[in-house]
Design a protein around this nucleic acid. Structure first.
Lengths: 154, 154
DNA sequence: ACAACTTGCTCAGTATACTAATGATTGGTA
DNA sequence: TACCAATCATTAGTATACTGAGCAAGTTGT
């Protein structure tokens, strides 16, 4: 075991990066092993659109904490896989109305168990009690610093 | 306050992404406000090289949990800013020997207080006790899942 | 009605990350 | 020693993320 290197270990930012890295890797590998092609970010967007039909991109960004500039590409890819439809809103012609297609809805149902499994795997080192505490602390720290990111949750 | 959307909220992976997003944003804004040009990843690499002179890129990747393919670009940028030197190793001509330049060492000393401040700001929502617990849980979950990522810490 | 402001989206440019393939070396082994 | 497998680094391609700029389309104030 390498000794601690002063300067970045022991820093929350470092561990946040590592955990996120692992979370993405586990998600990808579980979902791909099940035969689906969907990234964590695409999954989150799909769930949010399913829950709030006819949502526009800016509101979606606020819901899940995406940058608005990032959303464009994410929706582009979901649209090209025919999982989501994008239409100009009749109410506000600047806005794009998003909806999950039948294909997208079917995928969502099929993929959910694998997403659950991925979450279980990436937190396998913790007891239920510890996992609950980790979630509580992550939520608390994120909510307190929410306004410091470019993609604040609205 | 928007109601919870079932499906991705309440998932560790979601909160890991949000926390990481905020950590990067706070780091960038603190360091830039102090007049320096350095990303969180570049800072971590610089600290690791300073601690382990003549380190090669693969070992560096193992130390801080980077993918080897990512390191190339990170070192490219540190080198073009003249913060790091890269030489072909005499011992193993496949490897690159990395060292912090005088300029890099000076920057490191100057930037450290601002990095500390950034860490304090991004965790301002937590008590000291909670911060300690968050760190403990993050380390635990990362260590248990270390081998699941492509950039396992060696 | 008009200008000023704001908002929704997109694009260009930069920086992580990962996969997969390749080139250069090295070391072990038949 | 001649080869083969493993290792180090780089590259190409894709997907987040962010900054900053720009356009189109609403809204507000006068």
């Amino acid at each position: 075991m390498a000794r601690d290197i002063p300067g970045y270990e022991g820093k929350p930012g470092h561990w946040a990066r590592r955990f996120q890295q692992i979370a993405v890797a586990v998600f990808q590998s579980e979902v791909e092993a099940a035969g689906y092609d969907l990234t964590p970010v695409q999954y989150a967007a799909l769930e949010a659109i399913a829950a709030l039909p006819r949502i526009d991109q800016a509101t979606l960004a606020g819901q899940i904490g995406f940058d608005r500039a990032t959303i464009t590409g994410v929706i582009d890819r979901l649209e090209s896989k025919e999982l989501v439809s994008r239409r100009v809103s009749k109410v506000d012609r600047r806005a794009r109305e998003l909806d999950v297609t039948a294909k997208g809805a079917k995928l969502l149902v099929a993929v959910r168990p694998h997403v659950e499994r991925a979450q279980a795997i990436m937190t396998r080192g913790l007891t239920d009690r510890e996992l609950g505490e980790l979630m509580r602390l992550l939520k608390k720290v994120v909510e307190a610093a929410n306004d410091l990111s470019r993609a604040p949750k609205s």
